[in-house]
Design a protein around this nucleic acid. Sequence first.
DNA 1: TTGAATCGCTTTGAAATGTCAAGTAGTATA
DNA 2: TATACTACTTGACATTTCAAAGCGATTCAA
Lengths: 120, 120
Amino acid sequence: MDNEFCPVHEAIQFLQEKWVLHIVRSLLEGPRGFNDLSRAVGGCNPATLAQRLDRLVDIGVVDKEVQSVMPPRTLYRLTPAGQSLQQVIIAIDAWATRYLRQEADRGAVCGTKDVAAESL
Amino acid sequence: MDNEFCPVHEAIQFLQEKWVLHIVRSLLEGPRGFNDLSRAVGGCNPATLAQRLDRLVDIGVVDKEVQSVMPPRTLYRLTPAGQSLQQVIIAIDAWATRYLRQEADRGAVCGTKDVAAESL
DNA sequence: TTGAATCGCTTTGAAATGTCAAGTAGTATA
DNA sequence: TATACTACTTGACATTTCAAAGCGATTCAA
């Protein structure tokens, strides 16, 4: 066993948590409130979303700004560290566009469906 | 609702499955057998690993080559689509190295070697 | 020759994680 | 007045992941 710290491993560990990449992607479009974000992400239930956001704030990727408690009004926005995750999204985008595009014809829909791409 | 096909969303959906990025990263170092891969990934139990690999094969990211059934000998290797995921790993690597390094003090541990850094 | 280790998994039952529906208090809109 | 919106929380339920054991067969070390 090596006790060496590995940033990539850490990063993968946290990026692979369910909804994290979707949340970041939504926030790249701009700051949002909780429900707005929930809708943008699509399909993540509030309990999970709240927990994920807490974690993202902890890690320093998202900033939470409570504008007023009652009526409730909160804004979640990416920190610089969060914004720089855009490079990761871009890489995923490039990969996806190249290797997943053919799926469009088979009737796949943005949201929940199964991915089954053929390799070259 | 958009019925438009969204490759990025699809890609995120599958990349966020637990262990997927770790598996891809391990396979970037070269083809491996099941147990070897399991060790390289570190911490993924065989049931999950088997299921994940099936899915990766389905999607066309990994190629499974059964060399002999008994004694068992199997090789998992990345397809071209899989190899091109290296760009994603590289992006994560870049981000992690920049924003996660300070975490070292908190005692994080890494199991595998750094692949992507060399290609930078 | 016996015993241990390795291979690629599968099976088990329990634990962790994620999801769902409903509900909270207060404001704004219809 | 009635409904919808805000940001969440709660508790019950469903799904996913877990560690451990085991499988038949072969290879290797004692």
